[in-house]
Nucleic acid binder design. Structure first.
Ligand SMILES: [Zn+2]
Ligand SMILES: [Zn+2]
Ligand SMILES: [Zn+2]
Ligand SMILES: [Zn+2]
Lengths: 148, 148
DNA sequence: TCGATATTGAAAACGGATTTCAAAATACAG
DNA sequence: CTGTATTTTGAAATCCGTTTTCAATATCGA
């Protein structure tokens, strides 16, 4: 059993929540995909195999995943909530192509450290942060150049 | 006349838009405040002196400000659009206190440069970015400690 | 097994952004 | 100055993703 599954089941027990078939189906589907899907897109994909599961349940379950730490909630400014699987406690930030929607993940320890420095300088206690670089991925940049 | 006023008037001319009393009132009110107000809050504040101006007009005008570059549109993840005055072409990022809502601005050239490095490494063309550090400002952190 | 409790799915409600539309204001050519 | 085409306005309606409601159903521990 995957580590995330255990974490989720533990969370259910701890909070005296129930282990339902829907939750298990959604959990497995969520862990299987590895993307930054909006609730809507994830629901549409899931529905193909499990038409009985409602949007509300998907939404509530994804929020549970975020609460117990196996999912990260993302918001790339397009008004859609997105979720991705969290692996261990690794952290990363994102390059977001505004043309094709492609998401590239990156990790930069120097930036992370500088964020801490900034916070310290302002006596600020960081709980979370958000860093996104918006622009064009290589493919879309080439296309744009070509079309001029 | 402030530089921003000129920029806005130029923009109106260029786009063949009209110079209305509402737009001028909103412009002056916007330049006078220096905060990160949501459309709603700005509207409520403006309404005290100018009860005749409608929310839709305020909303549309703030968007115009963003288009012509005298306002920056912000989104601190609370589902409210926020606007702040842009001074020249300076850029800054934000520390956001999740307890009291206080916003602290900062500028860190090293972080900015590292972002460019990251983008280059991924052959990505940056058009914009977003960096926010969420947590507790000094006052709220002290309070929280005191209440344990 | 029973019964208290939690969960489900459909539909409704919510909340902020945006659009609609008819009346009013503006720009500008004559 | 007009007159008129065009834009803008404010109120209300609409949009659209998120969240809640609620009655029926499922879970699970005693
Ligand atoms: Zn980071
Ligand atoms: Zn990611
Ligand atoms: Zn920056
Ligand atoms: Zn700012």
């Amino acid at each position: 059993m995957k580590k995330q599954e255990e974490l989720f089941l533990d969370y259910l027990t701890r909070k005296r929540l129930k282990n339902t078939s829907q939750r298990m189906i959604i959990l497995k589907a969520f862990l299987r995909q590895d993307s930054h899907l909006s609730t809507e897109d994830f629901y549409l994909q899931l529905r193909k195999k499990h038409p009985g599961i409602g949007y509300a349940t998907v939404h509530r379950t994804l929020k549970l995943f975020a609460e117990c730490g196996i999912a990260a909630e993302r918001n790339f400014g397009d008004g859609q909530m997105r979720f991705e699987v969290r692996h261990d406690n690794e952290h990363h930030d994102h390059l977001v192509c505004t043309e094709c929607g492609r998401i590239i993940e990156f990790e930069n320890q120097q930036i992370e450290q500088l964020q801490l420095d900034v916070a310290q300088k302002h006596n600020f206690f960081i709980k979370d942060h958000r860093l996104e670089l918006y622009g064009l991925c290589q493919a879309c940049f080439s296309n744009d150049q070509g079309n001029i």
